[in-house]
């Protein structure tokens, strides 16, 4: 009788393990199945086989599977270049957000791999599972398709006007919400600067960071432009794919810790002045 019960258990565990979607559950389930199988061998009067199955089939095999899983796990970040939050220095990523990401990789024991994308491709990369995390001046109030982290760097939206006329809007999700009909849309800050310089547009809606960056590059005359601050305070955040709850939780813990220890404030001072 005991044999049959254990057989049923081993079979059920195998079915459970091999029908999972997550590999980790599959591996653990197969390990449990091996243990039940060792019990079956004991009932079949094969103590030697039971011992071998328990130590090799359950012990070593599960270990190597777990280690292989752990070692082939990589945290892919869909990143948009956004100085000084996240940018390329040579061929290595750098910036304020990169410092946080590197810490996150250490915490999760996973290697952080940065996938440079255009801003328009970010949500696609997260939805398709190509990346688990998005970074690089990500500015969204709320999105049902994403998990957002707590605020990392506070910012605001501004409207710059060098004269009356057509308006150009940077294609951040937040800025786009303010777009009206007849407004131009620009994916990249450089494009926006070009539109302003060429006189194609005379007013621009953008975030503070881009404003500062473009201003430094002399995209518009400092003295005779009017700056109007729009709306409520906002913040740059990380976006996490919906099915990566583990990453999201680790990120929240990490950010809270950094804030408590004052590291985040230090970073902001160092990178943004």
């Amino acid at each position: 009788m005991g044999t049959l019960v254990l057989c049923g258990l081993a079979g059920a565990l195998a079915v459970f393990a091999l029908t999972r979607r997550r590999l980790l559950l599959g591996v653990i389930g197969v390990g449990a199945h091996s243990l039940a199988l060792a019990g079956v061998y004991l009932f079949l009067s094969a103590p030697d086989v039971a011992l071998a199955e328990a130590s090799i089939g359950f012990g070593l095999v599960t270990f190597i599977f777990l280690l292989a899983l752990r070692r082939s796990g990589r945290l892919v970040v869909a990143a948009v270049e956004c100085f000084p939050l996240l940018y390329q220095e040579g061929d290595r990523p750098a910036g304020l957000e990169w410092e946080i990401l590197a810490r996150l990789g250490d915490r999760l024991h996973r290697e952080v791999h940065v996938l440079w994308v255009c801003r328009g491709d970010v949500s696609g990369a997260l939805a398709s599972g190509e990346a688990e995390l998005a970074a690089g001046g990500f500015l969204v109030r709320s999105d049902p398709g994403l998990r957002l982290s707590r605020p990392v760097v506070p910012t605001r939206l501004v409207e710059v006007a060098v004269g009356p006329g057509r308006r150009v809007v940077l294609a951040h999700p937040c800025c786009e919400a303010l777009a009206q009909s007849g407004d131009l849309r620009c994916e990249e800050p450089e494009e926006l600067a070009r539109a302003l310089c060429s006189g194609e547009a005379c007013r621009a809606v953008l975030d503070l960071l881009t404003f500062r960056e473009l201003g430094l590059k002399g995209a518009w005359p400092e003295e005779n432009c009017a700056i109007r601050v729009l709306e409520d305070p906002l913040a740059y955040r990380f976006a996490v794919a919906l099915d990566a709850a583990e990453v999201h939780q680790a990120l929240e813990e990490l950010l809270a810790e950094l804030e408590d220890r004052g590291v985040l404030a230090d970073l902001v001072r160092r990178y943004l002045g």
Binding site: L23, G26, H33, S34, L37, Y41, L44, S45
Partner: peptide, 26 residues
């Protein structure tokens, strides 16, 4: 389609063949 899953499957199938021999000895 994932190779690790395929290997898990092979592992289980191999375990089945082993159990087959042990059960026939009983």
């Amino acid at each position: 389609r994932n190779l690790v899953w395929k290997l898990l499957g092979l592992n289980v199938a191999g375990g089945g063949a082993i159990l087959f021999l042990v059960a026939l000895a009983h």
